[in-house]
């Protein structure tokens, strides 16, 4: 009953949100048209301010449809599933079986049982496979949601990450495998390849740069940019009308880089995530957020 009420509220808000988006795009366009030529810098500044205002509006938690994913994720976490017919309450996210509070703030991390470093998505897959024995092919096929496709992974990530909302990133680099992955992640951040010769650093290693009008966070140094970026994922992406995880974000950046799609939940993505999370150390986690 309570959940049902929340659902209808959320869907109303989705509509409102879409209307607001249209309004914002309209506003942006009118600014661009109204500025006389030869004042491109001023126009860019004004646009940047407008985008800032637009972002502030989007982080209003009561207008955020991703809380629907949080609710679905909670239900998935507690429902017995798979051939073993158990819930994920036997899953150890690092803080002990079934403990969800604060677990996301310490991921990725080394797990003794798997003898591997895992990010949240890799760990959830591990638990679904070993604890529940669910149909993994189906789960991975639905890793990213789309029209008519709900993603268990996105819902579970929304739920688990939300249970660290308000906390600070505190990823450990105590284990040698965590250290190795951090170093690999850093190297991959600077690794140039493919037909555009891009690396992550091409777009994310200077302050205040833009692609077209899109501001780019500088992720090559620790501090505010990295903290605000990493602390806002997972996020509801208004432009895609879906909740997205870091796996999807990096998949999308590799798409722009003209690379082949990276394998879902592969170690290279986790290595990059450790590197980025470390850059964001001390930053506040406020998730799921909502953005463009």
């Amino acid at each position: 009953m309570r959940i049902g009420q929340r659902l209808s509220l959320v869907s109303q808000r989705t509509l409102l949100c879409k209307r607001l988006t249209l309004l914002c795009i309209g506003l942006l366009m009118s600014i661009v048209v109204a500025i006389p030529k030869g004042q491109a810098q001023q126009a860019a500044d004004a646009t940047e301010k407008e985008i800032e205002r637009y972002r502030a509006m989007l982080s209003d938690p009561f207008a955020n449809p991703a809380f629907l994913n949080v609710d679905r994720g909670e239900k998935l976490w507690t429902t017995p599933r798979g051939t073993k017919n158990v819930s994920l309450q036997g899953c150890d996210l690092g803080e002990g079986p079934g403990k969800v509070d604060g677990a996301y703030a310490k991921l990725p991390r080394y797990f003794t049982d798997a003898d591997r470093v895992m990010d949240l998505e890799q760990r959830l897959l591990w638990c679904m496979e070993t604890v529940q024995a669910v149909d993994m092919k189906d789960v991975i096929k639905r890793r990213f949601s789309g029209p008519g496709v709900i993603s268990d992974m996105e819902d579970l990530v929304a739920y688990v990450a939300n249970k660290s909302s308000g906390m600070k990133f505190a990823a450990s680099l105590a284990h040698p495998k965590e250290q190795e992955m951090h170093a690999v992640g850093e190297a991959m951040f600077y690794r140039r390849s493919a037909v555009m010769d891009f690396s992550c650093a091409t777009c994310h290693s200077d302050d205040g740069k833009r692609i077209r009008l899109q501001g780019l966070p500088n992720l090559s140094k620790s501090g505010k940019n990295a903290q605000e970026t990493m602390g806002s994922w997972p996020t509801y992406r208004v432009s895609q009308s879906q909740m997205r995880t870091m796996q999807h974000r990096l998949w999308d950046c590799y798409r722009q880089m003209r690379m082949p799609a990276p394998d879902y939940a592969s170690d290279g993505i986790t290595a990059l995530t450790i590197f980025l999370t470390k850059q964001a150390e001390g930053g506040d986690i406020l998730v799921p957020s909502i953005k463009r």
Partner: peptide, 26 residues
């Protein structure tokens, strides 16, 4: 901080089977 072979192994693991003609991009 890390050997080139180690990085190469992670890259291989992340793009295990690129589509026909795409390995050159990796």
């Amino acid at each position: 901080k890390v050997a080139p072979e180690t990085i190469a192994a992670y890259v291989k693991n992340t793009w295990k089977a690129p589509a026909e003609g795409w390995q050159a991009r990796v």
